[in-house]
Design a protein around this nucleic acid. Structure first.
Length: 434
RNA sequence: GGAGGGGUGGCAGAGUGGUUGAAUGCGGCGGUCUCGAAAACCGUUUAGCGGGCAACCCCCGCUACGAGGGUUCGAAUCCCUCCCCCUCCGCCA
């Protein structure tokens, strides 16, 4: 959410900075509604002031015994209240309309973000590592996974529906190893670990910006709860309606959670394999920072996410998203893309964003610094995947596969898998029991 | 799920229709005292919105005592609905 007052006073500048991003958002309607809102506020408050003053007088009259006189003033106030009721209803509906509008305008891109229409205008920042050079034909994870007994697509469909997967045996262990490796690594680098609900209420989803605009992307239950699409919503909303101490900033949090996405608009995309599924595991990073530090904190967060892939020894590149490709709440976003042999290309595995004060304003997350300034100010919030576990598992399988169909376990994961060094195909094992 | 109790300022805790944004205590902040600190004493201490103003950490107004509605000239105080918390019972991982 943008600051309504700021928007009102800088309308043309914001309209220009927003470019295509604003879509069909109606700046002129906002101005008209906001003008009406402020006019109504003045009319309502003027009458309320009159009423308060009259009520006080009535109290004095009653105590003095001037009951007849009091009755006259009472009648006047009744008249005033009739007017107030009508005005108040108009004010409330106008305020709702203004807020509805404000909740649907995206964040303003940071000046450093490249201008562009879509992903073709994103800018590559760096590449790290070399894609593996296989002396055999590498197998895609949708074939490799089942052969290893690590991924079972059919049974995922049986248990739930399409775009759900089951992980088995070494696949399940590898998944767990990745989660623990990521959490431990981030923990050692200063992130505090949390475990949070997989469901969230409407207020929480509104705080981070998923609602009201993107309800169709979410699974929901009755009783008004939603399955979280990312731990970002929970970690960020931990401090909703709170005032943090400046000395504690930046706060660095991480959490592992399952993530649930309807993927309503992605029919036909990434249909093979487990790249795009309804439920996946993710380790998420979230920061609360002072405004003047948030861009530096974003760079550091990207480094922290990249660090996971470096330790795993898998090639990746980092890009900065252009204005047209950024998410709703972001002021600036870096994507980290991992090398996938099956795609013969880099594929998104992490997205790290600085949301500026956009979420903080919606969720009321502030910080104070007595002696430095009076009152409180909005924090900046940041979030990033560190990393998407499912896609990391795919990357490990595909990048570490051998000619014999086995997969070498990356060194850093072996302590998390009881020292296991290689994952063997099902046929090569005994007593598998499949 | 059943029965009962409760939601007031950073915390504790008064307040059952009138000038209470809210006693008192603690905490916090500023000051006096002190070489310094503690103690003591004095003062101070919420947020949102609208307006004023070149601008404001300033001035004026409005709103807010879990949320929403109602009664009333006037509600933290009375009535209704909902949410949340606590205790006991039942059930259960």
């Amino acid at each position: 959410m943008l600051d309504g007052r700021y928007l009102r006073e800088n309308l043309e500048a914001v309209r220009t900075a927003m470019g295509k991003r604003a879509g069909d958002w109606d700046f002129d309607r906002f101005m008209a509604l906001d003008d009406e809102r402020r006019t109504l506020i003045q009319e309502v408050e003027g009458r309320q002031a009159l009423r308060n003053e009259a009520s006080k007088r009535i109290g004095e009259m009653m105590r003095a015994g001037d009951h007849d006189e009091a009755e006259v003033v009472k009648a006047e106030v009744r008249q005033l209240n009739d007017e107030l009721q009508e005005l108040d209803e108009r004010l409330q509906s106008t305020e709702v309309a203004v807020r509805e509008l404000l909740l649907r305008i995206p964040n303003i891109p940071d000046e450093s973000v490249p201008i562009g229409d879509d992903e073709s205008d994103n800018v590559e920042i760096r590449r790290v590592g070399e894609p593996p050079a296989f002396d055999f034909e590498p197998v895609a994870h949708w074939d490799l996974g089942p052969a290893l007994g690590a991924i079972d697509f059919e049974r995922g469909v049986k248990l739930a529906k399409s775009r759900f997967v089951v992980l088995g045996r070494d696949g399940a262990r590898l998944n767990r190893a990745l989660i623990n490796f990521m959490l431990d690594t981030h923990g050692a680098r200063g992130y505090t670990e949390w475990s949070v609900p997989a469901m969230a209420n409407e207020e929480t989803l509104t705080g981070t910006g998923q609602l009201p605009k993107f309800a169709e992307d979410l699974f929901h239950t009755d009783e008004g709860l939603y399955l979280i699409p990312t731990a970002e919503v929970q970690l960020t909303n931990l401090h909703r309606d709170e005032v943090l101490e400046a000395a504690d900033l930046p706060l660095r949090y991480c959490a592992y959670t399952p993530c649930f996405r309807e993927e309503a608009g992605a029919a036909g995309r990434d249909t093979r394999g487990m790249i795009r599924v309804h439920q996946f595991d993710k380790v998420e990073l979230v920061k609360f920072a002072r405004p003047e530090n948030s861009m530096d904190e974003l760079e550091a967060m990207v480094t922290d996410a990249e660090h996971i892939l470096e330790r795993l020894g898998i090639a990746f590149r980092t890009i900065v998203l252009c204005t047209g490709d950024m998410g709703f709440g972001a002021a600036k976003t870096y994507d980290i893309e991992v090398w996938l042999p099956s795609y013969n290309d880099y594929k998104e595995i992490s997205s790290c964003s600085n949301c500026g004060d956009f979420q903080a304003r919606r969720a009321s997350i502030k910080f104070r610094s007595p002696g430095e300034f009076k009152g409180s100010r909005l924090c900046h919030t940041l979030n990033g995947s560190g990393l998407a576990v499912g896609r990391t598992l795919v990357a490990v399988l595909e990048n570490y596969q051998q000619a014999d169909g086995s997969v070498v376990v990356p060194e850093v994961l072996r302590p998390y898998m009881g020292g296991q060094e290689v994952i063997l195909p099902v046929v090569a094992r005994e007593g598998d029991g499949s």
